[in-house]
Amino acid sequence: MLFAFIQQGGSGFEWYLHVHDTLASAERHVTSCDEGAYRTTEIVAIDADTDLDALDDQVENEIGYEDWGMANELLGAVSAPDPG
């Protein structure tokens, strides 16, 4: 299981995929983004066999300016089912 979120920010309105091995690490990273005034999606759990290169390509090329709906849709499409 991996933990991913998408960040908007930098010098413009580019999008970045961030993936972590632990939820705690992802939460720390989101906190640092918040402190730097960068917006993020929620953290989602994804399967470890997710094609991260393909997902990163989608994040960089398919999300439009301020398109938070698409950012959340991309993560929702790869999120791991809730085991509960």
Score class of each variant (00 low, 15 high):
Asp56Gln: 13
Ser11Asp: 11
Gly76Pro: 04
Ile63Asp: 11
Asp67Leu: 10
Glu42Phe: 09
Val78Ala: 04
Ala45Ser: 15
Glu73Ser: 04
Asp82Tyr: 15
Gly10Trp: 08
Val30Asn: 03
Ala54Met: 07
Gly84Gln: 12
Glu60Tyr: 02
Ile63Leu: 09
Asp49Ile: 10
Val19Ser: 07
Glu73Ala: 09
Ser25Met: 10
Thr41His: 02
Asn72Glu: 12
Glu66Gly: 09
Asp47Lys: 13
Gly36Cys: 01
Ile6Glu: 03
Ile43Met: 08
Ala77Cys: 04
Val30Ile: 10
Ser79Thr: 15
Phe13Cys: 10
Thr22Cys: 10
Leu55Gln: 05
Glu66Ala: 13
Gly84Glu: 14
Gly36Ile: 09
Ile6Leu: 05
Gln7Glu: 14
Asp57Gln: 14
Val59Ile: 04
Glu73Ile: 00
Glu73Thr: 05
Leu2Cys: 05
Pro81Leu: 03
Trp15Ala: 01
Ala77Thr: 13
Ala54Pro: 01
Leu55Arg: 05
Phe3Glu: 05
Gly9Leu: 00
Ala4Ile: 02
Ala24Asn: 09
Asp57Lys: 12
Glu62Asn: 05
Gly69Lys: 13
Phe13Leu: 11
Glu14Leu: 11
Asp56Pro: 05
Ala54Thr: 09
Thr22Gly: 02
Asp56Cys: 06
Glu62His: 03
Asp82Arg: 15
Val59His: 10
Asp47Thr: 12
Gly76Gln: 01
Ala37Lys: 14
Leu74Pro: 11
Asp57Leu: 10
Glu35Gly: 04
Glu42Gln: 15
Gly76Met: 00
Leu23Gly: 01
Tyr65Leu: 03
Val59Glu: 02
Leu23Ser: 06
Asp34Asn: 13
Gly10Ala: 03
Glu62Leu: 07
Ala71Asn: 00
Val59Ser: 05
Ser79Val: 12
Ser11Ala: 08
Ala37Thr: 08
Ala80Phe: 03
Ala24Gln: 08
Gln8Phe: 01
Leu23His: 11
Leu23Phe: 09
Ser79Lys: 15
Tyr16Ile: 04
Ile46Asn: 08
Ile63Trp: 08
Asp82Ser: 12
Glu60Asp: 01
Trp15Asp: 01
Ser25Glu: 15
Glu27Tyr: 05
Arg28Ser: 00
Val59Lys: 06
Met70Trp: 03
Leu74Met: 02
Gly10Ser: 07
Arg28Asp: 06
Gly64Cys: 09
Asn61Trp: 08
Val30Gln: 10
Leu2Ile: 02
Asp51Lys: 03
Ser32Gly: 01
Glu14Asp: 14
Ala45Tyr: 00
Arg28Ala: 08
Glu35Gln: 15
Leu17Thr: 05
Tyr38Phe: 15
Ser11Trp: 10
Ala54Trp: 01
Asp47Val: 09
Gln58Tyr: 03
Phe5Ala: 02
Met1Asn: 03
Asp21Glu: 14
Asp82Met: 04
Arg39Gly: 13
Arg39Asn: 02
Gly36Ala: 15
Asp51Asn: 15
Asp82Asn: 15
Ile46Ser: 04
Arg28His: 02
Met70Phe: 07
Ser11Glu: 10
Gly9Ser: 05
Gln58Ala: 14
Arg28Ile: 01
Gln8Glu: 15
Thr41Ile: 02
Glu66Ser: 11
Pro81Val: 07
Ala45Asn: 14
Cys33His: 13
Asp53Thr: 02
Met1Val: 08
Asn72Gly: 00
Met70Tyr: 00
